[in-house]
Lab assay of single mutants.
Amino acid sequence: MAAGGDHGSPDSYRSPLASRYASPEMCFVFSDRYKFRTWRQLWLWLAEAEQTLGLPITDEQIQEMKSNLENIDFKMAAEEEKRLRHDVMAHVHTFGHCCPKAAGIIHLGATSCYVGDNTDLIILRNALDLLLPKLARVISRLADFAKERASLPTLGFTHFQPAQLTTVGKRCCLWIQDLCMDLQNLKRVRDDLRFRGVKGTTGTQASFLQLFEGDDHKVEQLDKMVTEKAGFKRAFIITGQTYTRKVDIEVLSVLASLGASVHKICTDIRLLANLKEMEEPFEKQQIGSSAMPYKRNPMRSERCCSLARHLMTLVMDPLQTASVQWFERTLDDSANRRICLAEAFLTADTILNTLQNISEGLVVYPKVIERRIRQELPFMATENIIMAMVKAGGSRQDCHEKIRVLSQQAASVVKQEGGDNDLIERIQVDAYFSPIHSQLDHLLDPSSFTGRASQQVQRFLEEEVYPLLKPYESVMKVKAELCL
């Protein structure tokens, strides 16, 4: 049975990233139509530049190519590739079939990587351009969430054990800070992308030097003109047959890092959902379990974690691919890159769409948070109580021993009897502590235990987050809708 299948058929496997999760716009960027249309555009740009620099290419040939950029006979191309065992030459023939007058000058002087690699770089750039505003929107939604809850005390956790208090907004800023680093890295790697350009079979530009009869300047002009037509500021000066596969490492490393950030955020949300302090959106008709109707599973956060793990592992592909590119190139890269580049971007696209949807509907339960604080705060307040007693004339050592005994009794009630923490009640009825009984409410005010959390939130948002989001103001209103 021949390899390949009808990918629109229910009898043929289709990647869930495309069929179930990723956005239509990201799927289109990695589609065959987008790819092969870009090949034709690159052939047109090459012909236009070659004509401008004096090669015998007519206006009629150029116009014929322009008129057929979208006229792609995919069936013919597939048949040609089956016959020739070469995808680029299959599309040269297919393009030439609908451009008979231009057929002889299509791909003039070029090698397969002229269309293959340059198209990949265009796709990487455009895919990054799709991700950047999506990530900015996630940051914006979380920034709104953090600002609104900047002063809401909550129990902090280290080692997932109760620690000092923080605020809900401050905790959210930990998430935002990681995503801001990801946004900066995505922008950097996007701006650092260079075009492969017009380089020939081993990167020496020998074929173009021959076409222009040894004119170095025209060869350099050709490279520059096509690079500018493709919208790049610069091209690699040095290439082998391909652009260095280190570029793929750079791009997928940034995406993998984004995956790590999203995994951490969504894990926190899942843990908070278990504590009943916070939940992701839950639709009115949504079913959490087929057997347990009360369940409210954090399905979206779980999906993000599941896909983020996949995204983090994909960076190993370009690392290994770059390491086995012998001399000017081997074909070890080809099949692998067809999979890992598309999957990385479709996965990143999915987790950003999902995280935006989550961040637009996060639900906080202040009463649950308050109750958990009441359970733990008495123990945390013991040092403040000791200091207040010393100020009232008591002995630190005597007070410490009193607190120690009462704390152990209260802990026994919590752990052995399943009761509430009654340390404060014990202190309130103990005559030894009568000098500070009137101060206990103040000493137990949760806001006095959150330090500068709310001020940190305000400063972080104003100095770091809002300036970073400013270039994306025009796209901030787009909502994230999930079908599944």
Rank of each mutant, 00 (worst) to 15 (best):
M181A: 10
P24V: 11
F433Q: 03
P100A: 09
L443E: 04
A146G: 08
K75H: 10
Q439Y: 05
D430K: 04
C27G: 11
R337C: 00
T267D: 04
G203Q: 01
V247T: 13
L469R: 04
R196Y: 08
C305T: 11
F345Y: 08
V413H: 13
E462Y: 10
L377I: 12
C340F: 14
M380T: 01
D422H: 10
H7R: 12
S323G: 08
I427S: 05
L165R: 03
Q356V: 06
V189W: 06
D11R: 13
R188N: 08
R303K: 05
K391D: 05
I339S: 13
D191C: 09
R245E: 01
I436Q: 02
I176P: 01
L53M: 10
L468N: 15
G116R: 02
I403R: 01
S334C: 05
I237M: 12
E60Q: 13
I106F: 08
S334H: 05
H97M: 12
L469C: 15
A392V: 11
R40D: 00
D349G: 09
G5Q: 05
V247L: 13
K101C: 09
V414T: 05
L46A: 05
K229P: 03
A235Y: 13
T239C: 09
P435K: 08
L183K: 05
W45I: 15
T313E: 03
Q221A: 13
M387I: 05
R14W: 15
I339P: 02
E463W: 12
A206K: 04
N357F: 08
T52H: 13
A136T: 15
A3C: 14
M312Y: 05
T244I: 04
Q455D: 06
E360T: 10
K134S: 10
L468Q: 15
T347Y: 08
K477I: 15
L258N: 08
D6G: 09
K415Q: 06
V413D: 06
Q63T: 10
E48G: 05
L142F: 09
R329I: 00
H437W: 12
L53I: 14
Q286C: 00
K233W: 08
E302V: 00
L165M: 05
G419S: 09
D191H: 08
Q63S: 09
T244R: 00
R171K: 04
Q205P: 00
V324Q: 06
A431T: 12
T313P: 08
D223W: 00
G156T: 02
C266G: 09
F157L: 06
C180G: 11
G96Y: 05
K295S: 02
M278A: 06
V189R: 11
R14T: 15
M292C: 02
L258H: 11
F282E: 06
D32S: 14
N118A: 07
T354H: 12
L362H: 05
V414M: 10
R337G: 01
N297H: 01
L346C: 08
Q205L: 05
F345T: 11
F327V: 13
V368P: 03
E360K: 02
S140D: 09
G54F: 12
S9V: 12
L341M: 11
M26L: 08
R245K: 07
V254R: 09
S334T: 13
Q456R: 03
I105C: 14
V324A: 14
K233S: 10
E25Y: 11
E277W: 04
S23F: 07
I373N: 06
S112Q: 00
R190G: 11
G418N: 02
I424G: 12
H310Q: 06
P162I: 05
K470S: 14
P56Q: 07
G394Q: 06
N336R: 01
M476A: 15
V198M: 14
A431S: 11
Q286A: 03
A206G: 14
V251M: 07
D129K: 15
L174E: 09
L406K: 12
F232Y: 07
K134I: 07
R196Q: 14
Q286T: 02
S9F: 15
T38D: 00
W39K: 00
Q456E: 02
F232P: 01
W175L: 04
P435W: 05
D445E: 12
M387E: 00
A453Q: 00
W175S: 05
P56L: 10
A103C: 10
Q177P: 02
T166N: 05
A127V: 06
D333P: 03
S207P: 09
P10H: 15
W326N: 05
F74Q: 10
R125G: 07
S19A: 08
A77G: 12
D422M: 13
A150T: 11
M65W: 01
G394L: 07
D248A: 00
D333G: 01
G5I: 14
F449R: 06
A127Y: 00
R171S: 00
A335G: 13
L346V: 13
T382V: 08
G197W: 01
R141S: 15
L271P: 01
V262Q: 05
T119C: 15
V219N: 05
L468W: 10
L258F: 14
L482E: 12
Y21K: 01
I427N: 02
P467M: 11
F327Q: 09
P56M: 08
C98F: 12
F379P: 06
C340V: 14
L211Y: 10
S395R: 07
F379S: 04
D215W: 07
A480V: 15
L307M: 14
A136V: 15
T158I: 00
R85A: 01
Q428M: 11
K229C: 10
A49P: 00
Q184P: 11
Q320Y: 13
R141V: 15
L55D: 04
E250R: 10
D216P: 07
P378S: 05
